[in-house]
Amino acid sequence: MFEPGHLHRSSTGGMPGIPEFSVDVRYDVRNDPAEGAMLHFRMTGEIEGKPFEDEFELHRDTAFNFASSITRIAGKHGLHPNFGPVLRNHKEYDLMFEDIRNKLKAVPGEPVNLDHLLKDGF
């Protein structure tokens, strides 16, 4: 389920090979005095009965690679990338991408600072 600023994905584990999980991804824009606009993410949930919480931030110009970061964080807590919270429903991913674009007031073709890629863990 997607709503602006929040994506919820879950699975009851009823399909063979797909673990039981419930993951919430919340995000908002924060202004850092040194770095400028940053997209802050907070992920919470349970994967196979184990609760987790994690947070990370992406620079404005690298924020559109959010799915990679979300997948990496989910994997760190035990969810295989094939079952990740974003990739399972492309329509909701598109809605999230558009919401982030609107929140950041970004337009296609803006340059990316390669130093930000290193700072953001890519």
Rank of each mutant, 00 (worst) to 15 (best):
P85H: 02
E92H: 09
G49D: 10
N31P: 01
T71I: 03
G45N: 10
F41Q: 01
A63F: 08
R9C: 05
G45Q: 11
N31E: 13
H59M: 07
F41T: 03
Y27V: 11
P81M: 09
V23E: 11
I18S: 09
S22K: 00
H6R: 05
H59F: 08
F66H: 04
A34T: 06
L79I: 11
F64G: 09
F52R: 06
S68Q: 12
P81D: 11
I70Y: 06
N31Q: 11
H90S: 06
H80G: 03
F64K: 08
H8M: 07
A34M: 06
A37E: 13
S69N: 13
R42M: 01
S69A: 15
S10W: 12
H8D: 04
D54M: 07
H59G: 14
S11C: 07
D54K: 14
L58Q: 15
P16E: 14
R72S: 11
M38N: 01
G45F: 10
F66N: 01
I70C: 12
D61Q: 00
R42H: 06
D32C: 09
T71G: 01
E53W: 06
N82R: 07
P19I: 12
P51V: 12
N89W: 00
V25I: 15
G36M: 05
T12Y: 02
E92D: 12
R60L: 05
I18W: 14
H90Y: 06
V86F: 02
T62R: 01
N89V: 03
K50T: 15
H40W: 10
L7V: 15
H8Y: 09
G84P: 02
R60H: 13
I18L: 14
E57Y: 07
A37R: 11
L58E: 13
E55I: 05
F66Y: 12
F21N: 12
F52Y: 08
R88L: 10
M43H: 07
G49T: 12
A67N: 14
P85D: 04
P81R: 13
T71S: 08
H6E: 00
H90D: 06
R72K: 13
P85F: 02
P85N: 00
M15Y: 15
I73H: 04
Y27P: 08
I18Q: 15
S22N: 04
T12W: 02
L79A: 10
A67H: 13
D61F: 00
R72W: 04
E92L: 06
D24S: 14
K76F: 05
I70S: 07
